[in-house]
Amino acid sequence: MVNAPFSQDQEVVTMFKRMWKSRSGYLFILPKYILFTIFVLIPIIWSFFVSFQEYRIFGTEWVGLRNFQDAFQDDLFWVAVGNTLRYAAVVMPSTVIIALILATLIHPLRRGAQTFFRASFYLPTVASSVVIAMVWRWIFQTRYGIANYFLGLVGIEPINWLHSSAWALKSVIIMAVLTPPGVGIILYLAAMGSIPEDLYEAARIDGANRFVQWWRITLPLLKPTTLYLMIVSTIGSFQVFDQVMLMTQGGPGYATTTIVHRIYNVAFRDFQFGYAGAMSMLLFVAIITLAFVQSKLVSSDVEFKG
């Protein structure tokens, strides 16, 4: 017992010796870690304080939970939540399902055809969301847009897409659904390629047709990819901003205001940092909760070596 402090000292000394001996290890990570600390870690820690404060021209004031109360009592916040939920409820599942269908159709094709279709479906993902949103604003133009032109060919009256509160959010959703899920297709194709061929052979011998094979072998083995895509596209659709900003600016009225659009306006137009920080916090909690629930629902009980 008497020796304890001494041996502890010695431990500290040997610890430092070990650290000094492996100093090159620290030096290699140092530049990245400095940037990471300043621009990722500090904002994360700061975000906890921001949401409990109010920012005025002269200094800040600690306001406890008031920013969160404000959010819950703010009609506009709930409008934004509602719009975001409606958007995510359509876009998230359709992204995953369309990616699954297209990958299933592409996978049996020859190599050249696979590459061609993969490229065609990924190309719109490569172009900036700003470019895609700008052209869809033009496509949805009421008088000269090609959306109404095509509808006119089948005898449907022109729709006032972006300037009516009935259609504005639907327009943004239609754009998101019609922009092919390039990432999902690539991930599904990669996962399908790594499923061992002998599984299908065994199923064929047992007399299973193509659809049964797909339903009983492919689909279950794609579960990890499906789960990953569900979570990623949930996170993505909860953060929808670019499209709304460029196509409708959140309007008409507040018909297409989403959560991130609201955060942007509150923070960088009204300069209410505390309130925007509180909404960001709520958004984060919502996303994490959803990701957790999804991973519980689609628990991947399948394991296979790819």
Binding site: F39, I44, V50, I263, A276, S280
Partner: peptide, 12 residues
Amino acid sequence: PGQVLLVPLFMV
């Protein structure tokens, strides 16, 4: 997600 940290990042 990055969007969640916009405000504190801006302050930094």
